[in-house]
């Protein structure tokens, strides 16, 4: 993974620890990944894997009252800056400035990001005015252009709509318009299509890909759906119990998962191709996601893993080993389970 340009977003050793009932629980363990400009990294995992907490930590949205301690580095390399900015080191005022302008986020439920009593046009214009200070009239014109850009039909009349007058898909488009108003360098999308119907989901995914191609932003796309991953992402990182357990190019990971958890997850999705064929049982992963307060010894997945070897897998947390072609896998038995030619490690990028 030698990049000529520094990545738009580089996360190093990100840890999140929650204080609960007086005891500390680490929910995110040493996450590191990079996303280049124009690239999409999908962060996949089941509920409780820590994928959403990771995104909230990056945006510094874990409030004080949740008593979360976030450590590590989140280097944002904005196109306008010479040096990368560590989002975890700057003060709140600076963060507020960057949020929306250089790094933006969209959520699963667009209604949470929209104020129900204001017209959508005013809300978009407000964002524009807050960040660029452009006069009211100009901001409104910009809002109109944004609505057009995100494919809202009859944008000029939609400017005066209230959020509840729009469908779920239209609301998500409005939220995307607000997030992209300042052409951020990084967009974090947290399950943005999960609440939408498939036909609308297809529209939104296409829209996000088009916008990314036009603006060259880096995208961190959080989802639980491997179908969506294959649709939008260039690379995918699979999370389990607060750790990245596998990472690589989407096609490679989906075609040939190396970590037993990824393989199990992929196998448990019903296949459209097999629709209506005399059904065999779906593959399942025994047991369930562990409580972050009492993770099993060694590899977190080891109690559910069919390949686990007592004495090896439960002794230490395996390292996230780098393989060829930017692939990484966290499995002690990778050497036995993976053919040798895929294993030869590549030189680590700094």
């Amino acid at each position: 993974m030698t990049l000529s340009h520094p990545p738009a977003l580089a996360v190093r050793d990100l840890c999140v620890t929650f204080q609960r009932n007086g005891c500390e629980t680490r929910v995110i363990h040493d996450i590191d990944f990079e996303i280049a400009a124009g690239e999409t990294l999908a962060l996949v995992g089941e509920s409780g894997s820590g994928k959403s907490v990771t995104s909230m930590a990056l945006m510094r949205l874990l409030g004080r009252q949740s008593r979360a301690a976030v450590t590590g580095q989140v280097a944002l390399h904005a196109a306008t800056e010479r040096e990368p900015i560590d989002l975890l080191q700057i003060d709140d005022a600076r963060m507020r400035q960057l949020r929306g302008r250089r790094i933006a986020m969209i959520f699963q439920e667009p209604l949470t990001a929209l104020n129900p009593v204001h017209r959508v046009g005013d809300q978009i214009a407000e964002v524009v005015r807050f960040h660029s200070g452009s006069p009211r009239r100009q901001a409104r014109a910009q809002a109109l252009a944004l609505l057009e850009q995100v494919g809202i039909p009859e944008p000029s009349s939609r400017l005066d709509s209230y959020p509840h007058e729009l469908s779920g898909g239209m609301r998500q488009r409005v939220v995307i318009a607000m997030a992209l108003a300042m052409e951020p360098d990084v967009l974090i999308a947290d399950e943005p299509t999960t609440a939408l119907d498939v036909t609308v989901q297809a529209q939104i995914l296409t829209l996000l890909k088009t916008l990314q191609r036009d603006t060259g932003m880096a995208m961190l796309f959080i989802t639980h759906d491997f179908g969506v991953v294959s649709e939008v992402a260039d690379r995918v990182a699979v999370m389990y119990a607060g750790r990245i357990v596998e990472e690589g190019d989407v096609e490679a990971v989906l075609a040939r998962p190396l970590m037993p958890y990824t393989a199990g997850l992929l196998a448990s999705v019903p296949r459209l191709e097999r629709a209506g064929l005399p059904g065999e049982r779906l593959a399942t992963i025994a047991g369930r996601v562990p409580d972050p307060a009492s993770l099993p010894a060694g590899c977190s997945f080891q109690p559910r893993c069919t390949f686990a070897v007592p004495g090896t897998c439960d002794s230490a947390v395996p390292a996230l080993a780098s393989l060829k072609a930017g692939r990484r896998v966290r499995c002690t038995r990778a050497h036995e389970l993976i053919p040798a030619e895929e294993l030869s490690p590549c030189p680590q990028t700094s």
Binding site: V198, T199, Q201, A202, Q203, L205, T206, D225, F226, G227, V228, V229, S230, E231, V250, E251, L254, L266, V269, R271, L272, E273
Partner: peptide
Amino acid sequence: SAVPTPERRAHQRIML
């Protein structure tokens, strides 16, 4: 056609 699946990457879509 709108269902995203792990196998069919970037197939031709009938977009509603």
